[in-house]
Design a protein around this nucleic acid. Structure first.
Lengths: 339, 339
DNA sequence: TTGAAAGCGGTACCAA
DNA sequence: TTGGTACCGCTTTCAA
């Protein structure tokens, strides 16, 4: 049988409540007693049962990361480890744990009851693809702490973190202009996706308001990168540079342009979102916007801990942006001779 | 205040123990009572407290995935989501949860006491980079269920799952031979890494025992891919094909060969381990061995659940291999004309 | 078939 | 500064 608080109390010849106070480093216990009890704990290899503690304290020291594992996406595949690392880097030192909650089997509706009513976690972090307005309302009504990863306009009060895609898109576009490109186009991304909206907005921010740059949406894969590039080339005024929604779109564009003998960066400059998985390894390597997904996770963890510890702040709306970083590579090096 | 088993008992006019039995679908309770109590549970939105249950049952329904988040590796970045998905796919339906345990802050030594003695988890899954012989011994002594991801010869009794790298390497090499290549070489990987040993062994398995193929180790990055390729080319009998330890090594090789005007697959064939992140997107696309990391996680989860539920089987050694899949692409398509 | 009561391993209040 | 004791919410044994 494992050693419990009672064993320690008996061995130390003190009351169980005294042992408990030693565990919590209560100031009402003398140093002498503390030392004695601690020595015995060490000797007996005692470790308090987390369940008993949590039950008694009515607190879980556990936060849930809600995901839908049935969803496969490049973003998740390439950033999940970093996001978890970021979350853990802030909650771990505070002695909180991270539980992965897959809603795939449970279903979106029953999951609130499972995790929120079941008090398995003190707070949750979830994706904007998982949070429905109804779910948000339910969580809000219960004043249950939660942070959304990914902007979600229209549902409030809401606390979310996101990569600042709009500002990032502007940075990327400004870089193209600074390199001497004059007519950037934007390709890839689905119109219904808020990500697309934010990035196109940033793209437009960086351009003169009078200009009407080509923006061609399409599911972000290699084939569409090629197809949309073809479309761009057939325009009466073909662009001299392209901002791509993803690495795969950019890869498709590179392929298409390569086959047509159009050289990059001389004839057309290419910039793309995300450094992973391909940007450093294409020919030529792609100028891109590197997304700090570790920071994203850390920000989410930080906001969540703040909410858990100051429950009155829970009703306040809070958004936090993580700024992406421009990584300049050869695909936009129009001015490399001048430099 | 939240609704507890007492509230339900009161509302249903039965004893608390009766409610408990309904929760556990005990056969000693009449259907009528069950239905009545269940209806009230539903009505009152009751969800049992998992901590109370776990404390009373002395069981956690929780398994720990031990990782060292301070480690950054491509493999983890690209496969972590899949591994978690695999583990969850088997433990989730059994109502187990997955807790991420980062040993970065805790330290390798204290972590046993934290998770094992602290009874936070019923079993753990960890990496062969985390399991030390001492730790293994400690876990074995306590008969604590654990599964290692990644082969770890020399420590026993031990239960682990791994990708069958040796057989995979042989498959990859046999493919080269079947395509008509005669002198494969192996580059990349560190000699101290068991992964390197397994893959080189498989590489040799596929070749005539009399042959002494070039095997050049080196940390697996792009620069070494280039450097080792140069070395290969300067050999008196230069190889006609290369098995690469990783995508980055292969990428380096492609770069080097490309710059020298050596054409692939005609002059030299290239095959590599891992489909991620680059293999489909290089020029030419790389023939590779695709590692099913979801299956790896699922196998680990499966073995762990078996151990938890049959504690007497815990002393038995068990290894499970996940077979990698050959993905043929252009980089080894020597026979494409013939085909 | 149901109920009463004693745990599970802690916390926390109040009295000593 | 310490001890006694009533919980936290559920399970389980034993009696009714």
């Amino acid at each position: 049988m494992r050693v419990t608080i009672n064993d320690i109390a008996r061995a130390a010849n003190v009351a169980k409540s005294t042992v408990s106070k030693v565990l919590n480093d209560s100031p009402t216990i003398s140093e002498a007693t503390k030392e004695k009890v601690r020595a015995i704990m060490l000797e007996m290899n005692y470790e308090p049962s987390s369940f008993a503690t949590r039950l008694a304290k009515q607190k879980c020291y556990n936060i849930g990361l809600i995901i839908d594992l049935s969803r496969k996406s490049d973003f998740l595949n390439y950033s999940f480890y970093d996001i978890i690392g970021g979350v853990e880097s802030v909650i771990g030192p505070l002695d909180y744990e991270l539980t992965i909650c897959n809603i795939e089997h449970i279903g979106r509706d029953r999951f609130v009851s499972r995790f929120v009513l079941g008090r398995k976690v003190d707070g949750i972090i979830l994706d904007n693809s998982i949070l429905t307005p109804m779910l948000a309302q339910e969580l809000n009504e219960r004043s249950f702490p939660y942070i959304v990863i990914g902007e979600l306009p229209g549902v409030r009060p809401l606390r979310w973190v996101d990569i600042d895609n709009r500002s990032g898109a502007a940075i990327l576009t400004q870089h193209l202009l600074a390199q001497g490109y004059r007519n950037p186009a934007f390709i890839g991304g689905e119109e219904c996706d808020p990500l697309f909206g934010a990035r196109v907005a940033g793209f437009r921010d960086a351009l003169p308001h009078t200009s009407l740059p080509p923006v061609l949406p399409g599911y972000s894969n290699e084939a569409n990168g090629r197809r949309l590039t073809c479309e761009l080339l057939s325009l009466s005024q073909a662009p001299d540079s392209i901002v791509c929604m993803s690495n795969l779109v950019a890869f498709g564009a590179l392929q298409e342009l390569g086959e047509r003998g159009i050289s990059i960066p001389e004839n057309i400059g290419i910039a793309t979102f995300d450094n992973r998985p391909l940007a450093p390894y294409t020919t030529p390597p792609l100028t891109c916007l590197d997304m700090d997904t570790f920071a994203l996770g850390a920000a989410a963890g930080d906001m969540l801990m703040a909410q858990i510890n100051e429950p009155n702040a829970i009703q306040a709306e809070e958004h936090r942006w993580v700024e992406p970083k421009l990584v300049v590579r050869q695909s936009t090096a129009l001015m490399k001779g001048i430099d």
